[in-house]
Amino acid sequence: MSERGQGGAPVVVARGLTKRFGEFAAVRGIDVTVRPGESFGFLGPNGAGKTSTMRMVSAVSRPSAGELTIFGLDPRTHGPEIRARLGVVPQEDTLELELSVRWNLEIFGRYFDLPRALIRQRTQELLEFVQLADRADSRVDDLSGGMRRRLTIARALINQPEILILDEPTTGLDPQARHLVWDRLYRLKREGVTLIITTHYMDEAEQLCDRLVVMDHGTIVAEGTPRELIDAHSTREVVELRFDDDGDGDASGDGGRVARLGDLAERVEVLPDRVLLYVDDGDDVLSTVHREGIVPASALVRRSSLEDVFLRLTGRTLVE
């Protein structure tokens, strides 16, 4: 894969991009700019419009309204040319289960009109890249979920795409398999491939994305680097308190307790299982909590994450 810098014209530009299915608007006029070589994320819960956006950016589904250019080309008129330079890893692995790992890669190369000798060479390289070389002749049926995911990624790379589009690349994978996928994606990023990723995992977004947008109900509610988003929409630290209310007997009740905690923090979120205090110095606030005679069953001080940003912006947690 050739070297591509961070500079240069944006590879994806969307202005007022909209997707409607009948009455329902899945994507409602979003503006997005992706620069070459960056790793760009769409973070949001299920149903936020991420997949619909991905399908438009993949030059598969037509925008209902707004402007969209990919490599400066209009997908409505230059679909095949655009898709020849993209790699797509869909949410579900659409592999041919009864056929071999190698076959799945080779036939995909043919769709891109690549010469057979080149396909054979790249297939071998890609199998090694995703650590499936020893499974080349296995039926896809016999592979684990993590292996199938890696094969799907390898398949998306057969045409050496300039942009790799990944729709929830690690959903449903165990932690080990996730880290292996992330590691391969880092390598691609280092080689200059632009990554466009959707996820509803904040750790994935923090790990992989240079820049991201937070989507909710088809709109973009925030945009920036993970750090910028946390700085802009959350505090430095978070104190998580869990209460064992049955044995508490606090006459002021839950409402009174939250009101008292609210005086100590910039912001308080009450979740079903815990109370979050958004503060600058977690340890300091936690000792104040104890001094005030509020006794949580357990307490944890941690740094703010994208999850907190999301909670702040939408009032909901990401994975419900």
Binding site: G79, P80, L86, V88, T94, Y111, F112, R155, N159
Partner: peptide, 14 residues
């Protein structure tokens, strides 16, 4: 069932 066409449509084929 296999959604083969979905992956094929991500290539230059329409």
């Amino acid at each position: 069932i296999t959604h083969s066409y979905d992956s094929i449509l991500a290539t230059p084929l329409d």
